[in-house]
Simulated scan of single mutants.
Amino acid sequence: MIMKKLKLFPKIFLYTFSVMLFIIIIAHIMIYTFAPQMLSSINSISENGIMIENALNTERFVSEAILRAFPFSFILSIIIAFICSFLFSRVITTPIKEISDTTEKMAKLKKEVSCSVYSFDEIGVLATNVNTLYKNLITTINNLEDEKIKSNEAEQLKVDFLRSASHELKTPVTALNAILENMILGVGKYKNKDVYLLECKEIADRLSHMIKEILDTSRLDFLAGSEKTEEFNLAEILNKICEPYQLISQSKGIDFQVTVQDTCLVNTSKKHMEKLLSNVLSNAVSYTELGHSVSVVLQKNKIMVKNECTPIPESIIPHLFEPFYRPDFARNRKDGGNGLGLYIVDMIAKSLNLTYTFKQMNALQGMCFTLYF
């Protein structure tokens, strides 16, 4: 029981010293017992009495000499055994103690901690394995912390989005309720129900469209992980994506050009890619005035959508990708949609691990959205 409570160094020392002490005692006993007999057997080959007497005297002399030297030899052997046991125990336990001290620091998750590797034996392999295990543990913890931060940010974004959505829905609902209430009471101009029923219909349509956009946006996070990815040539479907916006541009007197400079192979969700580009094109056409142009340029690893318009200040651009954000210039509810277009673009790009830029053009007065593959 006492040995079990001892630490590794005294335990190894006592074990080693005990074994060496046992060997010393056995060796001294064997020397004291067999040395005179071996000498006697050597001298017993002669039958002469004098020789026998001399052999007996020699045997007695040797025994006495061994007995006199026994204390000094035994004490010296014990000292040597003590020193050897101490050095052996220290050599064995020092790397193990260092591993123990290091793992104690690792248990407190201190970074930049590692076991020193002095050899390639089992202890060296143990130190290497501990270092590898701890490195993997720290990496896993860091990844979990990053995921936790991202999860918290995502939850906060959802909360903010729902708050903004409820605020945006409140306005048309309140307006619709007020018009209907005045029509029921027959107050002033609201007696003309035919006119205001049409206005109610417009508000309801706008409200329905907004609800659909909100629901689609809220489902993007869930659809991104389950949507099937495939490799396709974006050049083959680009004209199909641009076709509706070319027709809108013609009706508004806007010059809409599509240029395919190279084949662009993309491995992602085709459905989400179409949704992303549709929102970008819709945004570009909506904020391009009569007589100006919208151009789409497809290259090997990127697509650019340029539209001539009043340049947007650098300080405002990041806010355009926030939900329901509308600057003061030409971005009200009537002309500028519901403020979800670029927010959806940002969400889809993040879910597809794509990067983009949105900045002022250098050559012309306008904005350029660039999506990189």
Rank of each mutant, 00 (worst) to 15 (best):
I2A: 13
K4A: 14
K5Q: 07
F9M: 07
M20N: 06
M20I: 14
L21Y: 12
I26W: 04
I29M: 02
Y32W: 08
T33H: 15
T33W: 15
A35T: 11
N48F: 08
I50K: 08
I52Y: 12
L56E: 12
T58E: 15
E59F: 08
E64H: 09
L67P: 08
R68N: 10
L76A: 09
I80A: 13
F88N: 08
R90V: 15
V91H: 07
T93M: 04
T94W: 05
T103F: 01
M106H: 04
A107S: 04
S116L: 03
V117H: 01
V117F: 00
F120H: 07
E122Y: 05
T132E: 06
L133Y: 13
Y134M: 02
I138N: 00
T140D: 15
L144F: 10
I149K: 10
N152E: 13
A154W: 08
V159A: 09
L162S: 11
S166V: 00
S166D: 07
E168F: 12
L169Q: 07
A175K: 12
N177T: 10
L185E: 15
L185R: 15
L185T: 08
K191F: 03
K191C: 05
K191G: 09
V195D: 10
L198E: 14
C200S: 09
R206I: 00
L207K: 03
L207C: 04
H209Y: 07
I211C: 10
I211A: 07
D221M: 04
G225M: 09
T229S: 13
E236D: 07
L238M: 13
E243H: 11
P244W: 13
P244I: 15
Q246G: 11
Q246D: 05
Q246S: 08
I248S: 06
I248G: 00
G253N: 01
D255P: 00
T259A: 14
Q261I: 00
Q261M: 01
T268C: 06
S293N: 04
S295I: 05
L298H: 09
L298R: 03
E308N: 03
P313M: 02
P318M: 06
H319G: 09
P323Y: 13
F324P: 05
R326I: 02
R326D: 01
R326A: 06
K334E: 15
K334D: 10
K334P: 00
G336P: 00
L340I: 07
L340N: 06
L342N: 06
I344E: 15
V345P: 00
I348Q: 01
I348F: 01
L352S: 13
L354K: 03
T355H: 01
F358P: 00
K359E: 12
M361S: 05
A363D: 15
L364T: 11
L364G: 07
Q365C: 04
F369L: 03
F369K: 07
T370N: 08
Y372N: 11
F373P: 10
